[in-house]
Simulated assay, not measured.
Amino acid sequence: MPFRLILAKIRFGTSLTLLFVAAAPALAQAGECPTSASEIATDRPDVTNSSLVVPVGSLQGENGINTARRGLDKTFDGTNSRLRLGIANCLEILVDVPDYVGRLKGDAGSGFGNVAPAIKWQFAALPEPWNLSVTAGAGLPTGSPKIAGPGLQPYLQFPWSYEIGGGWGTSGMVTTFFFPSDPANKQTTEATFVLEKRVTERASLFVEYIGDYPSRGSSVQLFNTGGGYLLTKTQQIDFHLAFGLNRNSPNYIIGLGYSFRFDDLFRTSSR
């Protein structure tokens, strides 16, 4: 899809999202969103986030560590932690906890990232193979500007998925990040696409394309692959390995993660 068309859709989606958020209590009444009987669905290890929200009354924690190399610089970061809480049917709030980026080799910077709260709503009344959600959030200027960038950083995100059948599925995501305080780049659009295969009842593998396209400057493009394994219905371990596809991208990123979910924290979740 041409980059200008992606940007046009994102601008149009910004206006629609205001209507979706206002209409959410009335629309999100179908019983098609996850419940405590559902398996854990995480926003990791791929960059593409899950199109599903966490069940109402459930608290989900997703954590990971990475090591990366870009030219002569080698870094690690962790923990990449996200907390997600289902507050209503098809609706969750989430927060990205600041992670720490450390230098292992070279002249790369080090420090903490931003805390980033958000709200996520899943569209319930879609045909069964499809899932779609919208997330609106912002990175708050709590971390090191060398790591996280300057100022407030709002974002708008649309993760989707489609079940092909036979254990195969596709998913993707379009995100627009806004950087009002950055004089060099005010906006970046990220597009992802995933092909996933469930190889056993507990294990799955994926391949993913990730492209970050700033309004000014060169793009960052990655090929990412990895998988996850369900220890239980509410616990998952995962791994991923990414390679840069152009000179502006990291040489590689390697990561491991662990996620868990606690259910039925609200009395209303059992009604």
Results as ranks from 00 to 15, higher is better:
E62C: 01
G31Q: 12
C33W: 11
R69L: 11
Y258C: 04
K186S: 09
T75D: 05
Y100N: 12
T268C: 13
W168C: 05
L72F: 11
A41G: 09
W121Q: 06
P183D: 04
L7Y: 10
S219K: 14
F178S: 11
D77S: 15
S15G: 15
R271W: 13
P183F: 06
K233A: 13
Q153V: 10
A24K: 01
F76Q: 15
H240T: 06
P145E: 09
S133K: 03
F193R: 00
D43N: 06
L19E: 06
R11L: 13
T17D: 06
N89C: 12
F20S: 09
F177I: 09
P117F: 00
K105R: 12
V115H: 08
L140R: 11
R202D: 07
L156T: 03
F239K: 09
G143K: 05
T225K: 10
Q235S: 12
N49K: 13
L245D: 05
M1I: 04
A118H: 00
S58E: 03
S204N: 15
P98V: 10
S58L: 03
G226W: 00
L16T: 02
D43E: 00
G57D: 13
L94D: 11
G71H: 09
P145I: 07
L140I: 08
A148L: 04
T189F: 04
P180F: 04
R216C: 07
S144V: 05
A24L: 05
G137P: 05
L132K: 11
G102K: 02
G211W: 05
P154S: 10
L5K: 10
P159W: 00
F243N: 09
S144N: 15
